[in-house]
Design a protein around this nucleic acid. Structure first.
Length: 804
DNA sequence: CCGTCCCGCCAGTAT
DNA sequence: ATACTGGCGGGACGG
């Protein structure tokens, strides 16, 4: 039998509505009309439904209502077409919305909510079968549990945090990350091979134990009493759902493509047949699951674009799941469902305070949060320490600073490449590309000493000891789009970091690499407040999240060489250019020198400890850091990738070039000032790139409402004329990836603001939250620019939103 | 054409 | 036996 034609369905519908007596052959003729008030939230229910429905549906329903109310008879004749329930109106997602609207997200524990399937099916006007789909995945999240036949309890989202945590844990145990990597890797290699080795690879990767077969993850509190159905098979959808969620929670860019998910879900059961139909079926199920997860706002649809084309995928938008809190602090937060944002914001503040204390003031009064953070880092370190990869030891403050710096500023303009892309590439790079560091290998340079990047950062910072100069450098590198190098005029490229070892990292792995970009599809937010909702949705990752995730991930990942290139580029390019790296060097002069020795000794460990109380840059001077913060952290090795920064020709033309000397002169005396030292720090390091480079400082004289009273340090060169001590420095970068420009600006602020010395510092690191300072996260704008007085405004990480 | 996914058959279970 | 569950995949719809 086939899916009934639309026409048929309609007539049938009309028929049944007209004559309840003659049920064609399907489900019981419903008593028609189901306006019983919503038990829970009658009003919000309706609202929710309407908002959930797409505009077209809305209007359609309006029309229908109109015609309905006006005259019934007409409906038959002229309007049958518009009254047709379009496919969308019957979608599982919408149905799920309706369903969810019936129950509160957080039902009061005192009063349990029960779900009677009969009622639901009747009231929602749907086949029973559909409700099962919904309920099953809700069950998998422990948002409902089955009491008995036809009966469920509604838990709402109360259990969600625990569930997710449990799922994440299981997901980790299942080694999904590896599996995903495997699949992706194979995807490449395969290309067109008659796979004879497929099985062995498979076997090896899935290797040890295939422990996870059909296990449903339960919660201690919530028992799963699906009668004796509990026993086996009747949990497929639930289990699938859980595993699907696991994939999100486990993979670092929390994006999972349907294809991969399906393969994994299949692979677990029987990894032999790559049955096509089975795959198709799996995909279909995943759509079902994804629909209700979407309704729950746990995921949303996106697309990943590879060279193969766009692939459907989903991105986790649910709460962040904190890694196991069993042994850990976080006393208060553990039960809350809301993501613990609040905890980390102060961290960033404190971090900035610690790094750039205001002049002469002992303003470390409120360090609790930073200390806490450091502690937790220490905690993490303990776990990491045993990791196989070689760790590097740097001060936590330094680490914080680096990650912070990278995350907040550098990464913003280095490229708009998202962390997801990075992750995907990382996943794709073949592990064996990087030989395990031999103890006898070349000394310091060849060993990967890394700071793992902030997860959202597009930069991979790496700490490199530099034997010759005795100075260690932090190199902020960016995963290269190697192919783009040749596409553009070399003149637009930042000069390569003159660091020998980078070439050593040149990958022999010239595997085809997909260019992956994620774009959000189906971004149908309400017609009103488009920006707002987006901004709210994409809350920037907070520091502690970043840190923990960062640490965690780097622990899990093998050190990979990430330099990859597109195959297509391979032939078209001059090979010598292809791997030309560029990036930032951040010298760490006070790298303890036990260090060097230590480093070379423990190459395998790659430990380099930085324990001085201050780290100075040769150019700028000292970045003051409280000794108390100088605990050390082990950062597992990370991969190093080249960086390509393209500068927009426009900006280059428009702006004068800052020279090193200018930066030098301006920066020397002002290190003690928080904002200026920070600014200098950045500028100088930008300046580290030889002046020929097209990093330009573009002084823009612009009215700054409140800043007139401030006498600013002149950070710009002589050529940069200062007026009223206000200078705005703009950097415009061109991202070769999506060929758009990215712009941000620096504004040095008053060095002395006696009454609020910290305000500057704090603001420096935060996106200001003034009324007019709403981040311009326009989906369409190519550049994001924020300016305001006395503050470095760092635009929110821009997400590429492409309407499908 | 293809990505989605609605529809409902029907097998397996619970009562 | 009857009703409930839910695996499954054909093929319709929408872009």
């Amino acid at each position: 039998l086939k899916t009934p034609l639309k026409q048929a369905a309609t007539s049938q519908l009309v028929l049944t509505e007209r004559q309840p007596d003659c049920p064609p052959l399907t489900t019981p003729p419903k008593p028609k009309e189901t306006p019983p008030a919503d038990p829970w939230t009658p009003t919000s229910n309706l609202k929710m439904l309407i908002s959930a429905a797409s505009p077209e549906i809305r209007s359609r329903e309006q029309r229908r209502q109109l015609s309905d109310s006006s005259s019934e008879e007409h409906l038959l004749g002229d309007e049958y077409e518009k009254s047709q329930p379009s496919r969308k109106e019957k979608s599982l997602g919408l149905l799920c919305h309706k369903f969810l609207a019936r129950y509160p997200d957080y039902p009061s524990p005192s009063q349990k909510s029960y779900i009677c399937l009969d009622e639901v099916t009747e009231e929602l006007h749907v086949e029973r079968r559909r409700i099962y789909d919904i309920v099953n995945v809700l069950e998998s999240l422990h948002m409902v549990s089955r009491l008995a036949r036809n009966r469920y309890v509604w838990h709402g989202r109360h259990n969600l945090p625990q569930t997710l945590q449990a799922l994440k844990k299981v997901g980790e145990e299942n080694k999904y990350i590896q599996q995903i990597q495997m699949i992706k890797k194979r995807e490449y290699e395969h290309e067109f091979d008659a796979d004879g080795k497929r099985n062995e690879e498979m076997a090896s990767s899935f290797g040890s134990s295939e422990q996870s077969e059909m296990s449903f993850v339960e919660l201690p509190g919530v028992e799963f009493r699906a009668a004796s159905v509990n026993g086996r098979k009747y949990k497929s959808l639930r289990v699938m759902s859980q595993k699907f969620v696991m994939l999100f929670l486990v993979s670092t860019p929390q994006i999972v493509s349907l294809e991969v998910a399906a393969k994994i879900l299949i692979g677990e059961d029987q990894l032999e047949d790559l049955d096509k139909s089975k795959f198709k079926t799996k995909i279909r199920r995943l759509y079902d699951i994804a629909n209700v997860l979407s309704s729950l706002k746990l995921i949303k649809k996106v697309h990943v674009t590879e060279e193969r084309g766009r692939k459907p995928a989903f991105k986790w938008t649910g709460p962040e799941v904190l890694p196991n809190t069993q042994d850990t602090k976080l006393e208060a937060t553990s039960t809350t469902c809301a993501p613990p944002i609040s905890e980390s914001i102060p961290s960033k503040e404190q971090c900035s305070k610690a790094l750039f204390p205001s002049k002469g003031k002992q303003n470390f009064t409120r360090h609790s949060s930073l200390i806490k953070l450091v502690k937790s880092i220490e905690n993490d370190r303990r776990k990491i320490q045993s990791a196989p990869t070689s760790p590097v030891k740097i001060s936590s403050s330094m680490y914080l600073f680096l990650t912070f710096l990278l995350e907040t500023s550098f990464s913003l303009f280095l490229s708009q490449m998202t962390a997801e892309e990075m992750q995907m590439k990382r996943a794709l790079s073949s592990p064996e590309a990087v030989p395990k560091p031999e103890p006898s290998q070349q000394p310091a340079l060849s060993q990967p000493l890394g700071v793992c990047p902030a997860s959202h950062s597009s930069v991979s910072p790496v700490i490199l000891p530099h034997p010759q100069s005795g100075v260690s450098y932090a190199i902020c590198l960016h995963p290269s789009q190697a192919h783009t190098v040749t596409t553009y005029s070399p003149g637009f490229m930042l000069q390569a970091v003159p660091c020998a070892n980078i070439t050593g990292m040149k990958s022999n792995n010239s595997k085809v690499l997909n260019k992956i970009s994620t774009e959000e599809g189906d971004t149908q937010r309400g017609p009103d407040e488009p920006t707002k909702s987006l901004a709210a949705e994409e809350r920037p990752e907070t520091k502690s999240e970043t840190l923990s995730r960062c640490l965690k991930r780097s622990q899990a990942l093998p050190e990979n060489n990430l330099i990859k290139r597109r195959k297509s580029d391979e032939e078209s390019l001059d090979t010598s250019l292809t791997f030309f790296p560029s990036g930032y060097l951040i010298p760490l002069t006070h790298c303890t020198h036990g260090n060097k020795a230590e480093c070379s000794n423990k190459e395998k460990a790659g430990v380099c400890s930085l324990q001085h109380t201050a780290y100075s840059s040769p150019i700028t001077g000292v970045i003051p850091m409280p000794a108390s913060e100088l605990k050390t952290v082990n950062i597992p090795a990370f991969h190093i990738t080249p960086l390509n920064i393209m500068l927009s020709p426009n900006s280059i033309a428009a702006a004068p070039v800052l020279s090193n000397s200018c930066l030098n002169s301006s920066s020397t005396g002002s290190a003690s000032n928080p904002s200026s030292s920070a600014l200098n720090f950045m500028l100088q390091h930008i300046g580290l790139i030889p002046a020929g480079v097209q990093v330009t400082a573009n002084p823009v004289l612009q009215h700054m409402p409140g800043s007139s009273q401030s006498e600013n340090t002149n950070h710009s060169s002589g050529s940069t004329n200062m007026q009223e001590g206000k200078v705005k420095i703009e950097f415009t970068f061109y991202s070769p990836i999506n060929e758009s420009t990215f712009l941000f600006s620096l504004q040095p602020s008053a060095p002395k603001e006696p009454q609020e010395p910290q305000a500057v510092t704090e603001n420096f690191f935060r996106t200001p939250g003034g009324p007019n300072t709403e981040p311009s996260l326009s989906a369409n704008s190519d550049s994001t620019q924020r300016t305001s007085q006395g503050t470095l405004y760092i635009p929110q990480r821009k997400l590429e939103v492409s309407e499908d």
